[in-house]
Each structure stands twice: as structure tokens, then as C-alpha cells.
């Protein structure tokens, strides 16, 4: 018990799907430890089982072999100690207002006894994600970025131990994405919640995570775990940022160094233009 700050332990996890005759090893022999309060990033090619891993942790899927343990208790199904934020914009309940979505979460989980308290807490979390004043709008009246903010607020409102995020900013434009990255770091520091964050974007992984877990596909396996000790706030300009970037880029199977540098330059260019607000809608 003492000195055991392991929040989540994944032991020898396999997940196999069968599509008719075909056998898909979505995940094979995954072993991971996540410490309380850590910010973990998972990156890998499409189809390497990132979503499947999150869904096993969330309890939506059962592992074929092995187990996921939360504070030494094996996970058997979904629960509010692990809240998921999805990529797609339809995760909010359209029949509730922004405030109603959070109040509903607090109500069905029986977190809070009185309606008045529920409202106050919901407002607190909306303020945390920068949406104070938008309480009475319905989800269809929000932009994509605002919807993701509400989804984050709703997930946090039930005070999960772990926030599972499956490419939550994947459908957003570059500007909104980088704003939300900054705010997520602030929220993470404020709430001290453990975050496991899946992304396709190398830059995003480096900006956010303490640890970056690089996956490979067919079968889905952990290729390498990279400790990211860059000081925050992290800027793609920094030299050591580039080193990690190139390392991940290589791990993901892009071998051509020329191309790597070219892409890095492009990203740098985007970064500059973004700062100058020349690309507001990219």
C-alpha cells in the first residue's frame, strides 16, 4: 500500500477480434503502468489499437487475455472513476442544454443530492473550461471546440480518477486545437486528474504528455515508451522538442530524414503563421 502510487496497471493485455475467418490482433501483450496524476499520451498509426486500449480501460470492451487494474481492483465494466471524452461531436445529449448535460451526469450518478447544488457544481466546471455564460445553449448551437469543452466539463464533473481522451481535438482546426491543448494542461494541473490521451499528432503528444507511448500496428503493440521531461510550457521552437519529434517520427516508420526535416519546417511555418494569426481557420 505504502509508496504505491500506481493508478492504473495493465497486465499482459490481449484483445483479439474475429471478422469471419479473419483474426485481428488489435492489441497484443500490452503492459503499462500509469502513476496517479500523470499525463500519458498514446500515439501510433491508424488501426494499432489505441481506441481499443482506451475502451478496455473504460470497461466498454473486455480484454481477451490479461487485465486492467485500477488501484489494484480489476476493471469489470464502465464506471465514473474512468470518464471518456470522444472525438466525435455527437457525444453530448442534444435534448439537454449545456448546463443540463452536466446536471444530468451529476444526477444519474447520484453524486450530488440537491438540484441547487448540482447547478452550482455544473457552473463551476463550465467556468473551468471557459464556457461561463453559455449554460442555456443547446449542443446544436455550439461550435465543435465548444462541444468538446462541454464534454470535458461533463466528464470532470463526476470527479473521475482517470480522464480517457480519444483524439478529442482530432476534428478541430489548428487554432482551436492549440488553444484547447493549453487549457487542458491548465485543467489537468488544477484538478490533478490522471489523463490518458490518444492522438495522431506528434506535436500534440509532445506538448501534452509526461510519457509518450508509441504503438505499432498488426499486431497492436507498444513499440517504445518515451519519457518527456521538457519544461512547460512547451514550444515546438525548442531544440529538444525537435529531437523528440524526430525520434517519434522515426519510430512511426518514417525513415527519410530529408522528409522529416521538411515536415518539421512546415510545422514551424504553421506555428509562426498561427502566432501571427494568418491562418485563423486552418
Amino acid at each position: 500500500m505504502v509508496s504505491n502510487n500506481e493508478e492504473l496497471v495493465i497486465e499482459n493485455l490481449d484483445k483479439t477480434y474475429y471478422l469471419g475467418e479473419r483474426r485481428i490482433n488489435a492489441l497484443e501483450r500490452i503492459n503499462l503502468q500509469v502513476k496517479t496524476g500523470e499525463f500519458i499520451n498514446i500515439i501510433g498509426p491508424s488501426g494499432c489499437g489505441k481506441s481499443t486500449l482506451l475502451r478496455c480501460i473504460a470497461g466498454f470492451e473486455k480484454p481477451t487475455n490479461g487485465r486492467v487494474k485500477l488501484r489494484s481492483n480489476e476493471i469489470k465494466g464502465p464506471g465514473i472513476d474512468r470518464m471518456m471524452v470522444f472525438q466525435d461531436f455527437e457525444q453530448l445529449f442534444p435534448w439537454y442544454t449545456v448546463l443540463g448535460n452536466i446536471v444530468f451526469a451529476l444526477k444519474v450518478t447520484k453524486m450530488i443530492a440537491t438540484a441547487k447544488e448540482r447547478k452550482e457544481i455544473a457552473k463551476h466546471y463550465l467556468k473551468m473550461v471557459g464556457l461561463a455564460g453559455f449554460e442555456d445553449l443547446y449542443p446544436h448551437q455550439l461550435s465543435g471546440g465548444m462541444k468538446q469543452r462541454v464534454a470535458i466539463a461533463r466528464a470532470l464533473s463526476v470527479q473521475p480518477r482517470i480522464l480517457l481522451m480519444d483524439e478529442p481535438f482530432g476534428s478541430l482546426d489548428a487554432m482551436t486545437r492549440s488553444t484547447l491543448q493549453e487549457e487542458l494542461i491548465r485543467i489537468w494541473k488544477e484538478t490533478k486528474v490522471t489523463i490518458i490521451f490518444v492522438t495522431h499528432n506528434i506535436e500534440e503528444a509532445i506538448i501534452l504528455g509526461d510519457q509518450i507511448i508509441v504503438f505499432e500496428a498488426n499486431p497492436g503493440r507498444v513499440k517504445e515508451v518515451i519519457k518527456n521531461t521538457l519544461s512547460r510550457p512547451r514550444s515546438p521552437e525548442a531544440n529538444d522538442f525537435s529531437q523528440i519529434w524526430e525520434r517519434i517520427h522515426k519510430l512511426l516508420g518514417f525513415k527519410n530524414r530529408e522528409r522529416v526535416l521538411e515536415e518539421r519546417n512546415l510545422i514551424r511555418l504553421f506555428q509562426e503563421e498561427r502566432e501571427l494569426s494568418l491562418l485563423p481557420h486552418l
Binding site: E90, F93, P94, A105
Partner: peptide
């Protein structure tokens, strides 16, 4: 009803009749 809304509901601990009552029925309205 979108699968993610169902999963958001299950994530909040809803299942069976409660899932139908709170997520499926309004979603199908």
C-alpha cells in the same frame, strides 16, 4: 441514436431500462 451517446450514458453507469429511458427514448424522439 449515436453510439457515442449510448457509451456516454453507459460511462455514467446507466444500463438496462435506465439507459432506454434516459438516452434511447429522447434520442429516438
Amino acid at each position: 441514436v449515436p453510439a457515442t451517446q449510448m457509451e456516454a450514458g453507459r460511462n455514467l453507469g446507466l444500463k438496462g431500462i435506465a439507459l432506454i429511458r434516459f438516452i434511447l427514448l429522447p434520442g429516438a424522439f
